[in-house]
Design a protein around this nucleic acid. Structure first.
Ligand SMILES: NC(=O)c1ccc[n+]([C@@H]2O[C@H](COP(=O)([O-])OP(=O)(O)OC[C@H]3O[C@@H](n4cnc5c(N)ncnc54)[C@H](O)[C@@H]3O)[C@@H](O)[C@H]2O)c1
Ligand SMILES: NC(=O)c1ccc[n+]([C@@H]2O[C@H](COP(=O)([O-])OP(=O)(O)OC[C@H]3O[C@@H](n4cnc5c(N)ncnc54)[C@H](O)[C@@H]3O)[C@@H](O)[C@H]2O)c1
Lengths: 246, 246
DNA sequence: AGGCGCTTGTGAAGGCGTGCACAAATCGCG
DNA sequence: CGCGATTTGTGCACGCCTTCACAAGCGCCT
């Protein structure tokens, strides 16, 4: 609770010091820690040990401590980490203290599900604009938002301070949409279309390809099937997996 | 030039073809290569150089060559790779020569979109069964499939040879569903619920958390905002990219 | 046949990430 | 006030992954 000193809290919105140079692998895990911390906070925990938080996030405790150490020293030896303080710190680092405005392009099968998902709001994001090229879709309301035509994209991005764009169009339209988003000023793109996007330097793209995930699982199925002799072998995972203990 | 097993695995005994011991990072890229190869095949290419395929897949050419070298020598120096041969090889390694049966549990907002997606079929998968706990959903037809009650899960998994399960239920139900899937005999799970799953050894779990993807993008937004904007040329996409140069 | 240009396959080097193991720090208690 | 229990923060070693650079191999042209 009462803490000694912490350099740059969200409250300290003055001069941003040198941005901590976090390893990419650490950044990818921070959201998971954050989710676990929110669960703990709801459960009423004030503090949590690295061991406990690591278990909740499904990672090694040493890895977790090293990750958090990159943010600074926010733990107390012999006690653990202050849950709310850590939440604030991670949210600050992730830039979630300001709720980010997101535009979604392609309100089809998948886009519809994304637009109707209320789970983003609690994770720091607001989908503020929906776009589609299909005039039959334009004008429809989803979750209180009106689908607009892609032609209005640029103005909306500027007017509403949108920095993140989500692409859920067919792959052959994705590059064009990406170009439009970038031209409008978007500097981060989450792409659901199974294709490679080309963007200028300074623009970040992340891709989610569900078929790829299934194919990776398929590989492991194939591998497991070719090892019919099962002598109590242990199996590793790549992203997230856990072996049951007791 | 029919497919041949390459036998450089030491201590290999038995008639089962030796399964190559691929690096996990390589496995994660094979699906991307496969997609690029299918595009090339449709475009009429017979052969492709590592440089060309690398560009199509958004990776470094040296990395691609090393990845493919793990499968064996399927390229021809001075020429490149035979597109169809490579497709067959990668599909074999990924276990896609048999179309895998997939069960989807949780036919809500997201599950509905997944069930209605026809893109999985062309990537080696068949969604053969849909399940939900909500009796209002049970009995409905989606894309020609009837939604069944989760109680029928075990029998369906056995009867239809399902090895992969997709979880798109709310997070608080996900662990229970995972337990049911494992009990039924599923050995691979793709989890869309934002929570950590605990499964026995030998079961693979991959997690897709869309909010995490957005949060990672948010971090980079935050980082970019704390630096000076700088111009740059075009860059192509890769797994994890950040395109900022000085 | 021989040479030349092109491309693969790979050895080697460097960087990054992971996990162990332990010193340092803090708390509670007698 | 000191001591033991507990937990953080981190130095270090190791293994994986990436990238470079180049020899070996292949086809084509003369
Ligand atoms: N539905 C899924 O579960 C799923 C799963 C994995 C991947 N994907 C991928 O996600 C993307 C969307 O899938 P979907 O099933 O929603 O497809 P969809 O065809 O249902 O929807 C695509 C939408 O994009 C719109 N669109 C097309 N061109 C556009 C443009 N230039 N600008 C703006 N909007 C445009 C269309 O009007 C349509 O509404 C595809 O690339 C697909 O491969 C979908
Ligand atoms: N919709 C999205 O775009 C989106 C985005 C990111 C993450 N997610 C995650 O995906 C999951 C599903 O999201 P959603 O929006 O489709 O939710 P939803 O509430 O619309 O659908 C959940 C479905 O699961 C069913 N269900 C509940 N308990 C079940 C059980 N024990 N067994 C079988 N079925 C059960 C419900 O009846 C419902 O049909 C959630 O965990 C959500 O956090 C969704």
């Amino acid at each position: 609770m009462s803490q000694q000193r912490h350099g740059n809290t969200p409250g300290n919105a003055g001069a941003v010091p040198a941005f901590p140079d976090l390893p990419e692998a650490t950044i990818a895990r921070l959201p998971e820690y954050l989710r676990a911390l929110h669960n703990l906070a709801e459960a009423g925990s004030d503090t949590i040990s690295s061991e406990g938080l690591a278990a909740a996030a499904g990672v090694n405790s040493a890895k977790l401590r090293k990750d958090l150490s990159h943010l600074g020293s926010y733990g107390t030896r012999g006690v653990g980490y202050d849950v709310t303080l850590l939440i604030d710190q991670i949210e600050y680092i992730l830039g979630l203290d300001q709720r980010r405005a997101v535009a979604l392009v392609g309100v089809g099968n998948l886009g519809h599900a994304l637009a109707g998902y209320d789970g983003f709001a609690s994770r720091g994001f607001r989908i503020v604009a929906l776009f589609d090229a299909d005039l039959d879709q334009v004008g429809k309301a989803i979750n209180g938002l009106i689908v607009r035509h892609v032609g209005e994209l640029r103005r909306a991005v500027v007017d509403e301070g949108i920095t993140i764009g989500v692409i859920s169009t067919p792959p052959n339209a994705a590059q064009g949409v990406a170009d439009d988003l970038v031209a409008a000023g978007v500097t981060s793109i989450l792409n659901f279309a199974p294709c490679v996007l080309s963007v200028p330097a300074g623009v970040d793209v992340r891709k989610v390809d569900l078929a790829v995930e299934l194919q990776i699982l398929s590989f492991h199925e194939h591998r497991k099937a070719s090892l019919t002799a099962l002598p109590g072998g242990r199996v590793d995972q790549s992203g997230n997996q856990e072996a049951v203990g007791s």
